[in-house]
Design a binder for these strands. Sequence first.
DNA 1: TTGTATGCGTTATCAA
DNA 2: TTGATAACGCATACAA
Lengths: 349, 349
Amino acid sequence: MPTIKDVARQSGVSISTVSAVLNNSSWVPSDTKAHVQNTIKELGYRPNRVAQSLKKGHSNVVAVIVSDIANPYFTEVVSSLQTRLMQEQLNLVICNSNRSHDLGDKHFEFMLARQMDGIVIIGDSVTPSALERWQERDDVPVVAIERDYGIEQLPTLLVDSEQAAFEATSHLIEQGHTNIAMIAGPTQGVGSTTFGRSTRLEGYKRALETAGIAYKPHYVVEGDFQLPSGERAMTVLLNLAQYPTAVFAANDLMAIGAMKSIHAAGLRTREDIAVVGYDDISIASIITPSLTTLAMPKRELGEAAAEILLRRLRPSTRTGDVTDTKTLPLAPPPLRQIFRAALIRRDSA
Amino acid sequence: MPTIKDVARQSGVSISTVSAVLNNSSWVPSDTKAHVQNTIKELGYRPNRVAQSLKKGHSNVVAVIVSDIANPYFTEVVSSLQTRLMQEQLNLVICNSNRSHDLGDKHFEFMLARQMDGIVIIGDSVTPSALERWQERDDVPVVAIERDYGIEQLPTLLVDSEQAAFEATSHLIEQGHTNIAMIAGPTQGVGSTTFGRSTRLEGYKRALETAGIAYKPHYVVEGDFQLPSGERAMTVLLNLAQYPTAVFAANDLMAIGAMKSIHAAGLRTREDIAVVGYDDISIASIITPSLTTLAMPKRELGEAAAEILLRRLRPSTRTGDVTDTKTLPLAPPPLRQIFRAALIRRDSA
DNA sequence: TTGTATGCGTTATCAA
DNA sequence: TTGATAACGCATACAA
C-alpha cells in the first residue's frame, strides 16, 4: 500500500503539501493541488486511518455493543442510531456480545483502547466493573441504554417499563381476564440486570393489586428473552391445574414463543389465551394473529443516544440562532432520560 | 490515559521492559514482572490498540459488511462467523450498509484503511469497483458470500440456489399445484446482484419446464427481499383473474409478508395457498402455520468464511500430524465453494 | 536482563 | 506557499 510519502515523492512535493491537499486546508495553488490529486488517484493511495487515529487521538467511529444481535429489538435501535450518526460523518460499528458478559466487557475495553469517538451500550452485556474502570480514567463518551449502572456521570436512557407493564396488564384485566400469567425476564445471566427486567414484573404486580387480583407466584415463569424460552415457559403454564387465560410476556420474542406453544397445545391465541408482548419488533404486527404489545421507543432511543454523543463530540456551534449573550452555556443534555412505551392494541381482530 | 511510558517511569524500568511483560516475551525476572504488572493495575493502564496496529500492521479484528442488519438471515451467518473467529482471538465488528451501495463501499474502504485483518462481505452491498480497487493494491484477505464478483483471487462462497429453487418448486408441483407464482428478488438496487437473486428464478423456471407447466411471466412479481414487499407482491398476485394456488418466495421475509397478505384476503396459507420460502430464518419454524423453506447453510457459510481467513492469517502450523515431507505445501482452500440449501418441509401439518 | 533508539503513517508546528 | 521535523504510543533490533 502506498503511503503519503510515496505520493509526495511521486508528485515531487513534500509530505506536508500532500497532507494539505488531503485535508484541503491552507492555500494550496489549484494546479499543484490538481497534480497531487492526480498522483493520488494514480497510485490508488488511501490514507491510513490507523495512523490518523493515533495522531489525532480519535477515530471518527462510534461503537455500539449489543448483547444479542439476533434480537430484532436491538437491530432496530441500532438502525436509527446509525442513521443519525452518519449524518455527522461518524461511522458506526456494531459489536455483538452474543449474550456473554465476558465478551461484552472484552468488546468494551477493546473499543476503549481503539480510540472510539463514543461507545453506546445497549442491554446489560457490559459489566459494572468494566464501567467503573472506564469511569476512573477514560474520557470517551459512553451512553447506556436500558440499564441503570448507577453511575452519575454516565448518560443513561431508560424506558418506564413499570408503567407500561401496568398498562398492558390492566388492558388484559379490562378485557375480563383474572387469571393472568407473566413470562418474565431472567433473574440470572444476560438480560437479568436490564432496567426492564425488574420493572416489567413490578408493573404487572401493581396492575393485579390495583384490580384486587391476588398475585400468584406460580403464574410468573421466567424466560431468558429468547424465543424458545417463551415456548417452554408457556408449556409450563399450560400444564398448570388451572392455566391462565392471558399472558403478559416481557418481550415479543418470548410472546411469540408462547403463541407457538399455545398453538401446539391445540388452543388459539387470542380466543383461548390472550397474549401481550413487549418491544413491538416488526414481526409482531405481521404474524397471525398479530401481537398486542408495548412499543419500545426504539427510534427515539437510538436518536437520543446519537444526540448525546454529538453534543460531546461537536463543538456545538449550531445552537440555533446566534444569541447576544455569548457566554450562555449550552444546557447539557439531561444525564438520565426516561422514555415511554405505548400500548399497541392489535387484538381488535 | 496513561501510556506505556508512564508505566515505565512509575515502576522504574524502561519502556521495553514494560512491553516485554505485556507480551510476556523474553525472560523478565518474575519479581520485576510482578512489580510492573502491579503498577499497570494501579495506573489502570491499557495498551493503545491503535498504536499497536500502526506498529504491527494489523489489528486483530475482522470486519463483516452486511447489507441489512434487520434481516435475520445475515445475523445468523454473522453469529457463526464470530464464534469461529473468537476461538482464534480475533474480534469481529459488524458494519451495516443499511441497503445502500454507497454506504457499503464506504464501509469497505474504511475498513481497508483501518488495517483489518480480514473483511467478509455478505450480500451485494459492496460495489464491484470497490473490489477492483482492493484487488489492485491491497493484501487484506477478503471473502465474499452470496455474490459472484467474478474476481479470480477472491474467495467466494455461493449457494446453489438454482437447484434449491428447482426442488422447492418441484415440491409444490408434486403436491398437485400447477398455478405456481414466484415472488422474486429485486432486479434493481441492493439484493439485485446477489448470486441467489437470478438463480432462484432460474430454478423456478426449470422446475416448471421440467413438469411441462407453461411459464407465465405475470406470475413472477418482484420484491426487494424485505417483508413488506412480499406483502405487496402477494396482493398483486391475489388480484389476478386467476390467482395462484402456490407461491415460492425468494426469501422467508417476503414469504412471511405474503402470508400476511393471504390472511388479510380472508384466505388460509397452506389450505388455500401454499407458500414456500428461502433461508430458513429462525422465525420460519415458529410462525403459524410454519413455513416450508430452503435452509440456507448459514452456519456453514460463516464457518467457511472464518476458515478461509484463518488459513491466510495463521502460519498454518496445525496442518494435522507432522508429515515428513516438510516442503509439502498446504493445499490452499478452494477459492470458490458452492454450498447446498436443503428443503425443509413444514407442510405436513 | 534491561535500556536506547528508530520507525510505523499521519498531522501539526514552525521555519524558510 | 511549501518543506523539515517533532510528536502520537508502541514494538523491536541492537547496544549495554
